[in-house]
């Protein structure tokens, strides 16, 4: 696009400098316009979902779409709760996501601290073994895990989703990175003052890795709220479904009858993740970048 320049811009004659400047502005505004168009396309499914969820059920699948609901019809939102046990499903997703978040924060904080700050024989072997398991895809373990869940008498319970998710190789790695950033001097000073090991961990280190825990919490919540594969296998009754399963089920149930009811369900299912995103977007983005920079 641009030719090679041998000299820097300041040595160019005035007219050429103007052309250069103009070209820069034009390219700049064209990219902004393309970005705007792109963002409209990317956001369109959201706008369409919200708008269509407020259309009359009979009109829901007719074109042209109505982007701005002039006569919003809220009946679809009532209907979702009638068609499927929607409250149960929202609650189930919340129970699973929140339990897994709390559980992973506990196990990963403990293990991350141990791997970062404590010395014990076999530490590095254990650490690398755990890291190696991050490579294992869910599908390679799901069949034996399902057998185990059945043996424990847990199929079709939320516990079947929560229990296997409590240990986390990724979370352990993530929090270890945060613990490593805390200066060792803090610990030494506390030890000289006679502080016990648990006290050092819980009172000095834990408060200093809060942002790491927030990163893990936001990523984990998002993942388990939206998870589909395991619930599909582990859960069988509609009252136990999590919300993604419920939506899939509702879609099959409504066929093309009234899609606005299904879309009302989608909108409702998005509210909690949006809320978590608003609160913790900094941590969500930090978490993704951590992976990228450290990996």
């Amino acid at each position: 696009m641009q030719s090679t320049r041998i000299y820097g811009p300041r040595t160019l004659p005035t007219i050429q400098r103007w052309v250069e400047y103009l070209r820069y502005r034009v390219v700049h505004w064209i990219t902004i316009l393309i970005l705007l168009a792109g963002s409209v396309i990317v956001l369109a499914p959201f706008a369409w979902t919200i708008a269509t969820s407020m259309r009359l059920p009979a009109e829901s699948f007719t074109v042209p779409p109505q982007w701005i609901p002039t006569h919003p019809d809220w009946s679809n939102y009532r209907e979702v709760f009638r068609k499927i046990p929607f409250w149960n499903q929202i609650l189930n997703s919340a129970v699973v996501a929140i339990s897994v978040v709390i559980g992973q924060l506990a196990t990963a904080s403990l293990a991350g601290y141990a791997f970062a700050r404590l010395e014990f024989p076999g530490k590095s072997i254990l650490f690398w073994l755990i890291m190696a398991t991050m490579m294992i895809p869910l599908q390679a373990t799901i069949i034996p895990v399902f057998v185990l869940i059945s043996k424990l008498g847990l199929p079709d319970t939320l516990a079947s989703l929560i229990l296997p998710s409590l240990p986390t190789a990724f979370g352990t790695f993530l929090l270890r990175q945060y613990f490593l950033q805390v200066p060792k001097e803090y610990e030494e000073a506390a030890m000289i003052d006679g502080a016990g090991q648990w006290w050092i961990f819980s009172r000095i280190y834990l408060p200093l890795v809060k942002s790491g825990q927030a990163v893990l919490a936001v990523l984990t919540f998002n993942y388990y709220w939206n998870e589909f594969f395991r619930p599909l296998i582990f859960l069988t009754s509609k009252e136990r479904f999590t919300i993604p399963l419920g939506l899939n089920d509702l879609k099959g149930y409504m066929m093309t009858g009234s899609i606005s009811v299904v879309l009302a369900g989608v909108v409702l299912s998005l509210i909690p993740v949006m809320f978590v995103y608003l609160l913790g977007q900094r941590f969500l983005i930090e978490g993704i970048m951590m992976g990228g920079l450290k990996g």
């Binding site: 196990t107 293990a111 141990a114 010395e119 409590l166 240990p167």
Partner: peptide, 19 residues
């Protein structure tokens, strides 16, 4: 060292059982 083993126990055991 003891604390280290106790702290990694849930994660190590969990990963052994479930992964």
């Amino acid at each position: 060292a003891l604390l280290g083993y106790l702290f990694v126990l849930p994660t190590v055991l969990g990963i052994l059982i479930f992964t």
